[in-house]
């Protein structure tokens, strides 16, 4: 379900790219330090975006140094010095990944899910202990996700709601002192969550149609087993509206956030990265044939 939030790399300045990677490395090392080496494998760009975004309202200057690391033993890399926002993003990364893996095991009997969640169990307990209230709320909302799935909920809005609320919880970081900023972050998170859920459902349409798994889009538009490409063509515009409107709300929230730093990267993601990703997923297979120039090598 994760990994959709990416910068639009060709439009990123080298300096911004270095900084983004600096946050990525910082999160990765924080994970290693707090939760053990294996937890570092769980890191993704969505949570890197969270760290960059949360730190953007932090008025303290960003520090960093050039360090060596296990994943890149040859070349040293710039790493942002960890702070409470990076640590919070690392906690959230553990909590979300753990639930995601657990879900994969219970739904699809995915063996990797079972192994992964077992490996992360201790880390999860520690992260949950540090964010008790958040974890409780997230767990409750995940129950809602399951319930709607079992009931075969036939509305994308309704089906996306609990996941969007989870992202609202995740983005409303308690370390951001200003209540108004937390509200803005919450709305931004809600809309990112909504976007991720619907985009992911679209991305899975073919597979779910074949396997008969639950998919909110298939339910809402009453897929009858016909040609999937025709089905997609018939509803593309409507899904596009929901996705683009959610992103326009993210942008409006971001405009009110009053970020004091990292604006180059966040502008790139909010104004371009997310919509480029939307188009790429919406167009489905076509984009691969066209030899799309986007993509994030890492």
């Amino acid at each position: 379900m994760f990994g959709y939030v990416e910068p639009d790399k060709p439009e990123l300045k080298i300096r911004e790219f270095e900084l983004f990677r600096g946050y990525y490395c910082s999160l990765c090392k924080t994970l290693g330090r707090s939760y053990g080496q294996i937890s570092r494998l769980s890191l993704n760009y969505d949570l890197t975006f969270l760290a960059v975004l949360l730190d953007s309202v932090n008025e303290e200057a960003t520090h960093g140094k050039v360090e060596r690391c296990i994943a890149h033993p040859v070349r040293k890399r710039y790493t942002v010095t960890s702070n409470r926002f990076v640590e919070y993003a690392a906690d959230m990364n553990i909590i979300l990944t753990y639930y995601n893996l657990k879900d994969k095991w219970s739904d699809e009997k995915n063996v990797l899910g079972a192994l992964g969640s077992a490996a992360l169990r201790r880390a999860f307990k520690k992260a949950a202990g540090r964010n008790r209230e958040k974890t409780e709320r997230i767990e409750g909302l995940l129950g809602e996700v399951d319930r709607l799935e079992k009931e075969k909920c036939a509305s994308i809005d309704e089906a996306a709601e609990p996941f969007a609320c989870i992202m609202r919880e995740v983005f409303r970081c308690p370390h951001v002192c200003d209540e108004k900023k937390r509200k803005v972050l919450g709305w931004l998170g809600y809309n990112i969550g909504k976007w991720i859920y619907i985009l992911d459902a679209w991305d899975d349409l073919e597979d779910d149609a074949k396997s008969g798994s639950y998919n909110a889009i298939l339910e809402q538009f009453r897929y009858d087993g016909g040609n999937i490409d025709e089905f997609k063509a018939g509803i593309r515009e409507r899904i596009d509206f929901s996705l683009t409107y959610s992103l326009s709300e993210c942008e409006k929230a971001y405009a009110l956030l009053g970020a004091v730093k990292n604006t180059g990267i966040i502008d790139n993601i909010i104004y371009s990265g997310l919509i480029v990703k939307t188009d790429k997923v919406l167009q489905g297979r076509c984009s691969k044939n066209e030899g799309s120039v986007q993509g994030f090598g890492g």
Binding site: I156, D157, E158, E161, A164, Y190, F241, S242, Y245, S246
Partner: peptide, 8 residues
């Protein structure tokens, strides 16, 4: 509420 599809 953020339910754009139904709203629209």
């Amino acid at each position: 509420r953020g339910w754009y599809d139904r709203g629209y």
